[in-house]
Every structure is written in structure tokens, then in C-alpha cells.
Design a binder for these strands. Structure first.
Length: 999
RNA sequence: GGGCGUUUAACUCAGCGGUUAGAGUGCCUCCCUUACAAGGAGGAAGUCGGGGGUUCAAAUCCCUCAACGCCCACCA
């Protein structure tokens, strides 16, 4: 006899039991295996900035569902876990911490010390993150855990950079970048935020040289940039200024003579005065103008810390605000100030430091995206082609357009960051002013450098520079370079550069490190690469399709000539109950560990799968669970914005601190865990499966395995097996199409209402009948076996617990032929049943029976409650029953349950379907058939009439020559097919009706 | 300004041309029945955002308006 199962499912016990066992058994570890088809997913590596949140829970649950499902299907399933160093994000978090705790800047600490602190931070959060993943039940191959900054990834980064450098894809350029003056680094467009800010809109004028009476006025939101003006620009077609084009003005602060130029793209006659000052070094539009008119020159007036540099003359050292005031004041003094209006202007803010961005001209490394000079597709085009040719497919498909549109701009990718946390760029540079030395040094390239390095040079302005890129650290080479006055770049690479390589870097590309200078560094670790690359699917959220997905495709194609994954599945975003994105700072976020603690990991996973619909967003209202009494206290919007630090529980009146990141005033106040009622479904569902199993186990005494022959089974068995086969097929199809919410729905609808509420209840009678018992036992265990398999990918813990409990009593089971069950459901086969089991006739008959039973129950319920006469009740019944109530009554008499109905109020208690014993059931089925005939005929008549009308309509249309002549051929054809279809439908219905009448 | 998405029961969401629009939660009634009160049997609750159109037939397709959310671009 089986060990008695506890009355309720205890998720915590299951998690504690199975997690270590699964790992011990090595179920999650994958080795290259030529016998099995591979199925590979690489995790979108979470940033080590902080702990995982709900978005990660969703992302990783879905991946795990896929991996677990494919593992059951017999694939060699590999899920590679890992984390991302997240350059700027992590560095700024640690910098902020150092600043608040020690009042020190990164410069006070120095590069080495800061990096050491960040590694400490990383260790802490990496452990936390991987722990969270484990708790969720993520079946990752932990032995293959990677970090974007570890040695394996570093090798791939180094190799890729070297190749791109060698092939001319990486170049050095002066570009206007978003400069974060606080962190003193350039940041990508995507790392900035534009917020409307109250500021001014100033209008000034410059005197035109040689004519003291003529002024040209212009407006600006940033007066301080006047110090860097190199031109004044008007529209070429603007009659007001035509005569001034080609003249010069004198910039009053610097005394520079600057030209008045015409540029149709920059100046808009309708805006402001129609005339605009040009500051190429500090404004993207002006920069573009300068590229069209290089003769006007470009002057950088800012230091990296945001203060004015020497080019600003007497204003050198002023910060932004002071410079603005001083420059404006000077204009007033000169009488060149025209006016100022208050205006809200969009201010670009750095995501990381939350300080204003300065557009700044600086030297950066770029990856060229444009097509190649020889006309061959460049990196961007290659990535576009991969998608247009369907080598990479998006799910849902709509996301592909955004991907293509973004890449089509082919904007070069700025990959250098002035940070300390990241992959340091392996380029050694030296600048020269002396042409001879420059050329001599350049000649060294011929002396053998190129075998291990590649050299590029730039000649901008008067300085010339040589840049030497090393494919790996060669001490001799580095020593030689240093002796020659070369220094390594201080910059590190953009985080996305290493993330872009993730699908192949994690798999070991480009092979073991190279011991010898001239070793073949192009030989990858082929055993692993060949087994798992390209990966199968990438699961991520839509906001990093461009930043990450596009770049993975691009580097995959560049390094390996093969796309990194075949499918890209984009899942929805988790919002709070008010439609806002979740974040720690808002306090509307939910920690997955809180959810696991309150509802269990299975419930978390079910909830996540259940909300993964086809839409973009899904709401998840958040509640605080009162730490005193467990009541659910909804998070209100004002709690978030007011930063409520104390809440009174409406149930127990005691105070607690809502879950959230802000500090408490009262350390004694207990903190609430945060949850969401959206996880209750999963919790209840796992408990339901638990108890269904408990029931079955308690009724398996004398169980013997034997094949089940469909044709010999009673109606309800054939119905159940039809439903099981249909459900299994649909679940498989839903998984194949990444319709996760549907998976949850299908499984739930089969297990709960159909299996538990109807079948199990009906089996109760049969289990008491020695003749019927053995078959009922076989069907129950066989279907339960199938359910546990279907449920495993979504709810592995409860599934595994029950799998083992079932194995104690019924190790040999299954439909139609019993077999020995696998040792764990994790590695069990994914179920599939014969199509022949799907029987719409049985399902229809059963549905009618259900209708009837429900109608009778309604009558009983009402009668009992309202204590009215039988007739009154009948009137209130559903049409089906009411119409035939008298006939029903005649049948009801002999039936035990219904006989009591006539005896008066409260004579019987409402019963479940299980209240129906076998003979009753048969009676119900035949009764349902009889009663339904009239209604069914009526319904059919109505439908046939409707179809006839439709047919008439379509025929009329086809008879109309105007229509057939004007409509496209395919539309006409479609209508013709519709006619045939309708005719067939009508014929089928008429036949159906004949059958009914005969019955 | 361009694009994408959403708007269906009190709440969270399914349904996406064809019987009477569904589920879970919540609400109401009854029931602690030997699997499960994290449960069971029932019930009430919807002009499918507004307005046009296409169609024999529209929650579903088209146009338009509105609200909300996200992305991209721009704003001297």
C-alpha cells in the first residue's frame, strides 16, 4: 500500500525534496550526443545589478517549460544559464553605493579597487540570481554556467574584436556622443531618457561684419553653446536673409569671425527667427550640418566633466549653469539680447546617473554597419537577410518589422565605453606629430606584427595615430609596444558587445585558449559547437530586440556564418494592476521568492504561463500580505507615489510595512511579503491535482495492469479518453506555437472540470462494483499518468511528487497498453494518444447529458431554496428541461436521486455528478437523447434556414454580373467555394435531422 | 510626428467571420458528502470603448474618433 499522502499539497516540502535530487541525477546536464536531436536555449543573461524580478520569472519560466517539454520529447535538451556583467548599470550601482557609504568617487578609489568592489558585488548578486532560478525549478545545465566577463566569454570577445578590426569593420572615429558628465562616459541612445523640463528659449542677435546696423537674430535653449558656434545658418530659400549668405559675423564672447551659411536641412524658415546658430561639437543636427559644410570648422568647448575648456576663453572652468548665466549676461551688456520666453524643453537624461546628457565630440571605436565597399552586404544587411529569408523567425510575427526597420538604418555601433567595468579594449595606440617617426613606426607592421596583431592608423587634424590590436595577450608583443611608447586604451567595450556573442561564446567558441603565437585561433571547440549551435529558440522581451537580438544575429553570422537561433519568441511584459511597468523604485514589483514562499514554485510557474498571452502587456495587481493575519491588502497607486511606509491592515488593524525598497522609520515594524491573487489559481490547481491523485491512490487496492480496449469501454471512459487525446494534441500544438497561456488553459480545463468534477465523481460508483472496478482503475491510473506528464513542464514539483507516489502502487500503467513508468517524470516521455480516440459523437452525447444533469440540479437547488410548487420551478428551468418537464418527470420517478426531489424541500442534498450511480447515468444519457431530440430538431431547422438564406445571398451575388465582372478573381472563386461548402453543410444537417426524427 | 499594442462581466484575461460570447477571481444561494473548504452543486452579472462601413452573417474584417500603454524619431 502506498504511503499516505498529506491532505494538502506542501510546495515547500516538494521543492526541498526534488531540487537536489534532480541535480544529483543529472537530468539537467547535457552532453553532445549524436543519437538525439539537440534542443538548445541560452538564457538571456540577467544583469548582476540586482535580484530577479517578475519579468525574469516570466522569461525563465517559459524557457523552462520549453526545455522540460523538449526533454520529454526525447531531445538532447540544453539550457545554458549565466549572467551579464552589465557594464554601466553595475558600475553605477556600485559607484552610488560607494558614494553614499564612504562619500568617495571612483577616482578616489582608483580603477583596480573599484573593479575589485564590483566583482564583490557581482559574486553576491550572481549567487542570489542563480539561487532564485534554482528555486523556481529552472532546469538549467548548471555545469555550463557562464558570465559575460569570464575567461571563456572574454576569449570570444577578444577574438571577435580582433577579427572585426582586421577586416575593417571596427574603426576609430570622432563622433558626437551622449556624454554623461557624472560617470564621464559616453552612453548609447538607448541608455538615455528624455524628460520635459522647464527651461528658457532665448533670442539673441549677432552683428553682421562690415555693417554695424545689420543684425541677424536667432534663438536657442542652450546659450552657453554660443562659445562653440562656428556658423550662423539660414534656409537657402529664405528671402529675409538671402543677401546675408556668405557674409560673416563676429562671435562676441570669443571674437571669432564665423560665416553665415545656407543649409536647407538645418534651418527652417517657419521656426523661430528662421535663423539658427551652428555648434557642431555639441548638437547632433549642427554636427550633421558641419559634415555637409566642413569648412565652417568644429570646436569642442567642454571638458569631460562638463565644464568649459580652454576654447571657451575667459569662461574656462565654468560649469554648465554658470556658463549659461555668464554668456547671457554678456550678451545683455552688449545689447545683443533680444528676449527670453519660458519653455518646456526636452532634456536628455542619463539612465544611469540621472544627470543631463551633453552631446560631446570624442574619439570612440565603432563597428561599421553599412554595406561593404565591394558591394557585398555589411553586418546590418546580413542580419536583415537572415530574417527576411526566414532563417530567423519571430513569434509573434509582428516583431520582425521593428527589427528590420531598425537595422535598415545601418547606423554604426559605438562600442567603446569610458568605464572600468567590462572587457578592456585590446588596442595599443600611439600618436605622432612627426610624419617621419610615424612612417617609421608604421613600417614595423611589415616586421611581423601582423601575424598576431592588426594595425590601423588615423590621421585627424595634425595628429597621426597608430592603433595596434592584439588577438590575445602576448607579453613580448606588449613589452615591445610599450617600449615604443604605445599605451593600451583605457576604454572598455559596450556590454552588448559581449552579450551579442552569448549564443556562441557560452558554447565555447572559439575553442581552447591559444598557447602559441601562431596557433590556429580560428579553430572552435567544435564538439560542443556542432552539437548545440545554432540554438533553437531565444526567449526575450520586446525592448531588447534591437539592442540584443539583432546584434546576436549579426555576430553569429559574422563569426560562424550561421544564425544564432531559429526562433525568437517575444513574451509580454508584466505590468502592475495600474498598467505600469514594475520596478523596485516604484514599489510595485514582486519578488519571485515572495511568491514561491506564499504560493509555491508550481503556482508561480502556472501563473506566469497563464499570463503569457499574445498581447504586449499583462497586468498583475499586487497585494501586500499582512504579516500578522495573512490578509491581502491591495497596493494602491498612492502607496507607490506617496512612498507609504506604514499601512494598517484592514482585517486585523495592526500596522505593517508594505513590501518595497524604501527604508523604514520603525525597524520593529514587520514587513509584508508581496503577492498577487493571480497566483492563487496555480496554487489551487496544484492542490487539486494532488487530491485527485490522493483519491485514486486510495482506490487502487487490487490494481492490475492490462491493456484497455476502447470499443469495450463504457461511454464515460470513451469520453474521457477522447478528451485526453484531444487535450494532449492541443497542448503539444500550443507549445509548438509558443501559445503558453493556452497550454495552461487546456490543461486546467481538462484536469479540473472534466477529469475531477465529472469523471472521478462518476468513477466512484464503478469502483464499488467488482466487475467494473478493474477497468476503472486502469483508466484512472492511465489518465493520471498522462496528466502528470502534461503538467510536468509547467508544474514540475507537484508532478514529480505524485509521479513517485503513483509509482509505489502502480509502477506499470498507461494507455492503451501499460508499460513500466520512467524513474522520474522529468525524463518521462511526452504523451501522445491515437487520433482514433477523438470521438466527437461521444463528446456530443456526453455534453448533452451534462446539460441535462445541470438542469436537474438547478431545479433541485431552486426548489429547495424557494420552496415553490413544482410547476413554478419548472417554468424557471432552462428551456431544454422546461419544455419537456412533464416527460422528464415520468422518467425521474424511478431514479433514486430525483425521486427524492418530489418529496419536498431539503429532502435531498445537491449532489455532484458522482451522486449518479451507474444505472442512473445510463438513464440520464438516454433521457438526454430523448429530451434533446425535439430541441435539437428545432435548432437544426433554424440553422438550416439560416444556411439557406446565406446560400441564397451568395447565389444572388454570383448571379449579379456587375459583381462577377468587377470583383477580383479570387474573391469570386472564394464565393463559389462558399456555395459548395454551404450546400454540403445543409445536406449534412438535413441528414442529421432525419436520423434524429427516426430516433 | 512615425510605428506597435490594448480597450469584452466588478477585477485579470480568453475568444479574432458562422449555434445561446467564455474562464478564474469576486458577488449571491445551498452544502464540512470518506480526494480536495486551497473544496462541491447552482445562480446573478456583458448595447464585446464610441461612430460609420463591408458581408447573407461582425466582439471578430475595413475606416474613423477617443482613452491608455510601449517603442522610434524630432523639437535652434
Amino acid at each position: 500500500m502506498a504511503t499516505e499522502l498529506p491532505k494538502a499539497y506542501d510546495p515547500k516540502a516538494a521543492q526541498e525534496k526534488w531540487l537536489p535530487l534532480w541535480e544529483e541525477c543529472g537530468y539537467f546536464h547535457s552532453k553532445p550526443n549524436s543519437e538525439k536531436k539537440p534542443f538548445t536555449i541560452v538564457i538571456p543573461p540577467p544583469n548582476v545589478t540586482g535580484a530577479l524580478h517578475m519579468g525574469h520569472a516570466l522569461n525563465n519560466t517559459l524557457q523552462d517549460v520549453l526545455i522540460r517539454w523538449k526533454r520529454m520529447q526525447g531531445f538532447n535538451a540544453l539550457w545554458v544559464p549565466g549572467t551579464d556583467h552589465a557594464g554601466i548599470a553595475t558600475q553605477s550601482v556600485v559607484e552610488r553605493l560607494v558614494c553614499s557609504q564612504e562619500k568617495k568617487t571612483r577616482h578616489d578609489l582608483g580603477r583596480e579597487e573599484l573593479v575589485r568592489r564590483i566583482w564583490e558585488w557581482k559574486e553576491k548578486y550572481e549567487t542570489r540570481i542563480l539561487g532564485q532560478l534554482r528555486q523556481m525549478g529552472a532546469s538549467c545545465d548548471w555545469q555550463r554556467t557562464r558570465f559575460t566577463l569570464d575567461a571563456t566569454c572574454a576569449r570570444a570577445v577578444r577574438e571577435t574584436f580582433f577579427r572585426m578590426f582586421r577586416d575593417g569593420y571596427i574603426y576609430r572615429g570622432k563622433r558626437l556622443v551622449n556624454w554623461d558628465t557624472q560617470l564621464q562616459t559616453s552612453v548609447a541612445d538607448d541608455e538615455t531618457d528624455t524628460v520635459p523640463t522647464k527651461s528658457g528659449f532665448w533670442t539673441f542677435k549677432y552683428a553682421v561684419d562690415g555693417d554695424s546696423d545689420t543684425f541677424i537674430s536667432f534663438s536657442t535653449t542652450r546659450p552657453e553653446t554660443m562659445l562653440g558656434d562656428t556658423a550662423v545658418c539660414v534656409h537657402p530659400g529664405d528671402a529675409r536673409y538671402k543677401h546675408l549668405i556668405g557674409k560673416t559675423v563676429t562671435q562676441p564672447h570669443t571674437g571669432r569671425k564665423i560665416p553665415i551659411i545656407a543649409d536647407g536641412q538645418l534651418a527652417d524658415p517657419k521656426l523661430g527667427t528662421g535663423c539658427v546658430k551652428v555648434t557642431p561639437a555639441h548638437d547632433p543636427n549642427d554636427y550633421a550640418c558641419w559634415q555637409r559644410h566642413p569648412e565652417i570648422g568644429i570646436i569642442n568647448i567642454l571638458n569631460p566633466d562638463g565644464t568649459i575648456n580652454a576654447a571657451g576663453g575667459e569662461y574656462e572652468g565654468f560649469d554648465r549653469t554658470r556658463a549659461r548665466e555668464a554668456v547671457t549676461k554678456r550678451m545683455e551688456e552688449l545689447g545683443l539680447y533680444v528676449g527670453k520666453e519660458d519653455r518646456e524643453v526636452p532634456l536628455k537624461i542619463s539612465d544611469r546617473s540621472k544627470t543631463p546628457i551633453e552631446p560631446l565630440l570624442s574619439d570612440q571605436w565603432f563597428v561599421r554597419m553599412a554595406d561593404r565597399d565591394d558591394g557585398k552586404p555589411g553586418l546590418a544587411q546580413m542580419a536583415i537577410d537572415a530574417v527576411t529569408s526566414d532563417k530567423v523567425k519571430f513569434f509573434p510575427e509582428r516583431y520582425r518589422d521593428g527589427y528590420i526597420a531598425w537595422l535598415a538604418e545601418k547606423r554604426d555601433w559605438c562600442i567603446s565605453r569610458q568605464l572600468w567595468w567590462g572587457h578592456r579594449i585590446a588596442v595599443w595606440s600611439r600618436t605622432f606629430t612627426d610624419r617621419k617617426t610615424y612612417e617609421d613606426t608604421l613600417a614595423l607592421e611589415a616586421g611581423g606584427w601582423s601575424s598576431v596583431s592588426h594595425v590601423a592608423w588615423t590621421t585627424q587634424d595634425e595628429t597621426m595615430a597608430i592603433h595596434v590590436c592584439l588577438g590575445h595577450d602576448d607579453p613580448d608583443m606588449i613589452a615591445a609596444l610599450q617600449a615604443d611608447g604605445f599605451t593600451q586604451s583605457e576604454d572598455v567595450l559596450d556590454t552588448w558587445f559581449s552579450s551579442a556573442l552569448w549564443p556562441h561564446s557560452t558554447l565555447g567558441w572559439p575553442g581552447p585558449s591559444i598557447p602559441e603565437k601562431n596557433a590556429d585561433r580560428t579553430a572552435p571547440d567544435w564538439a560542443t559547437m556542432r552539437s548545440y549551435y545554432p540554438t533553437s529558440v531565444l526567449c526575450t522581451s520586446r525592448d531588447i530586440i534591437t539592442l540584443w537580438v539583432a546584434r546576436m544575429v549579426l555576430t553569429g553570422l559574422y563569426n560562424l556564418g550561421e544564425v544564432p537561433f531559429h526562433h525568437v519568441y517575444i513574451h509580454p511584459k508584466v505590468m502592475d494592476g495600474f498598467g505600469e511597468g514594475m520596478s523596485k523604485t516604484k514599489g510595485n514589483g514582486v519578488d519571485p521568492l515572495d511568491v514561491i514562499e506564499i504560493y509555491g514554485a508550481d503556482a508561480l510557474r502556472f501563473g506566469m504561463v497563464n499570463l503569457a498571452t499574445e498581447t504586449q502587456d499583462s497586468r498583475m495587481p499586487v497585494v501586500n500580505i499582512c504579516p500578522h493575519c495573512g490578509a491581502q491588502v491591495p497596493v494602491k497607486q498612492e502607496h507607490m507615489y506617496m512612498r507609504t511606509k506604514k499601512l494598517a491592515c484592514p482585517a486585523c488593524k495592526k500596522n505593517f510595512r508594505p513590501g518595497g525598497p524604501w527604508p523604514t522609520d520603525d525597524p520593529e515594524l514587520p514587513t509584508a511579503r508581496q503577492g498577487s491573487d493571480r497566483f492563487e489559481v496555480g496554487r489551487n490547481f496544484s492542490n487539486k491535482i494532488w487530491n485527485a491523485t490522493r483519491f485514486i491512490l486510495g482506490n487502487l487496492e487490487g490494481y492490475t495492469p492490462a491493456p484497455v480496449i476502447l470499443s469495450e469501454l463504457p461511454t464515460e471512459d470513451r469520453w474521457l479518453l477522447s478528451r485526453l487525446a484531444t487535450t494532449t494534441k492541443s497542448v503539444t500544438a500550443a507549445l509548438e506555437g509558443y501559445h503558453f497561456a493556452e497550454v495552461a488553459r487546456l490543461v486546467y480545463d481538462f484536469v479540473w472540470p472534466e477529469f475531477c468534477d465529472w469523471y472521478i465523481e462518476m468513477s466512484k460508483g464503478r469502483l464499488k462494483d467488482p466487475a467494473a472496478r478493474p477497468t476503472a482503475q486502469r483508466v484512472l491510473t492511465g489518465v493520471l499518468d498522462g496528466i502528470l506528464r502534461l503538467v510536468q513542464p509547467v508544474m514540475p514539483f507537484v508532478s514529480e511528487s505524485l509521479w513517485h507516489a503513483l509509482a509505489e502502487v502502480a509502477p506499470v500503467r498507461g494507455l492503451p497498453n501499460p508499460t513500466s513508468a520512467e524513474e522520474s517524470v522529468v525524463i518521462a516521455n511526452w504523451p501522445s494518444y491515437p487520433d482514433a480516440w477523438m470521438d466527437s459523437g461521444v463528446e456530443k452525447r456526453f455534453a448533452r447529458m451534462q446539460d441535462l444533469v445541470r438542469s436537474v440540479r438547478e431545479v433541485r437547488n431552486r426548489y429547495q431554496v424557494e420552496d415553490k410548487t413544482r410547476l413554478d420551478v419548472a417554468v424557471k428551468c432552462s428551456d431544454v428541461v422546461a419544455a419537456d418537464f412533464n416527460a422528464l418527470g415520468a422518467f425521474i420517478g424511478p431514479l433514486a436521486g430525483i425521486a427524492n426531489f418530489a418529496a419536498g424541500p431539503n429532502a435531498i442534498k445537491p449532489k455532484q455528478a458522482g451522486g449518479i450511480v451507474r444505472p442512473e447515468f445510463e438513464a440520464y444519457v438516454s433521457l438526454a437523447g430523448l429530451i434533446d431530440v425535439a430541441a435539437e430538431i428545432k435548432r437544426l431547422e433554424k440553422q438550416i434556414a439560416e444556411k439557406r438564406k446565406a446560400l441564397e445571398g451568395v447565389n444572388a451575388k454570383l448571379a449579379n454580373e456587375k459583381f462577377t465582372a468587377s470583383a477580383p478573381a479570387d474573391v469570386v472563386q472564394q464565393q463559389r467555394e462558399l456555395v459548395e461548402d454551404l450546400k454540403k453543410q445543409i445536406a449534412a444537417m438535413e441528414e442529421n435531422m432525419q436520423d434524429l426524427k427516426l430516433a
